[in-house]
């Protein structure tokens, strides 16, 4: 120890009541008490061990719990009873919607999801031109709804998750408002279609 005036002396604060169990340990002034580990923390420890053993036993020795794959199947079944099997809702029977509210919805959907590839006015870009007379996958409502729903091999995305109603609206919008406007843009692709 130096005699330096400013040197900070580490103090040990003794406490009569708390330090009854002081041990003879002293490490650089650090002392230790002979207290037991608190009972409640030991209880938590034993409970978690018990939980773990039971967890293992439940899932593996007695094979009670579902595996990850079984859990998924259960979830799918639950979904199917609640909503029906979506995959079977074929869009063939669709008709073009003409009322204004549906067309407006379709247009909003188009603005939000389609312009990046098909352009603000349907003139095409990454995706094909929706205003000309040539269509790659057909130009009836069922064909358009199907390609919107399932996507296609040239890079058309699938919008299945947006639901059949939205798909019918946007397909109706495309066929009634964009098709035939003949905007200059992407060149003709696919076959002529009326």
């Amino acid at each position: 120890m130096t005699n330096d005036q400013n040197h900070i002396q580490d103090e040990y604060f003794h406490d009569e009541n708390l330090d009854k169990k002081l041990m003879d340990h002293d490490y650089d002034g650090i002392k230790e008490l002979d207290n037991p580990a608190p009972a409640w923390i030991m209880a938590i420890f034993y409970i978690t061990i018990f939980f773990s053993v039971m967890y293992g036993a439940y899932y593996f020795w007695f094979s009670q719990g579902p595996t990850q794959d079984q859990e998924y199947l259960a979830e799918v079944n639950e979904y199917n009873t609640k909503f029906g099997q979506k995959e079977n809702n074929a869009p063939e029977a669709l008709t073009i919607l003409t009322n204004e509210a549906d067309i407006a919805e379709g247009m909003a959907f188009y603005q939000a999801n389609c312009v990046a590839c098909h352009g603000a006015n349907g003139e095409g870009g990454v995706g094909s031109n929706l205003t000309d007379a040539n269509w790659i996958h057909g130009c009836d409502i069922a064909s358009v709804a199907k390609i919107v729903k399932d996507g296609g091999p040239n890079g058309m995305m699938s919008y299945k998750q947006h639901g059949d109603k939205k798909i019918q609206q946007v397909a109706s919008y495309v066929l009634t408002k964009l098709k035939g406007t003949n905007k200059p843009g992407k060149e003709l692709q696919g076959e002529a279609c009326q």
Partner: peptide, 25 residues
């Protein structure tokens, strides 16, 4: 913590036994 906390507080480690148990566990 086992060094600086008791040094800064000037107080003894509460339980040597707990130190042992929780270290190995």
């Amino acid at each position: 913590m086992y060094y600086y906390l008791p040094k800064a507080a000037g107080r003894p480690i509460y339980s040597y036994k707990l130190s042992i148990i929780h270290f190995w566990a």
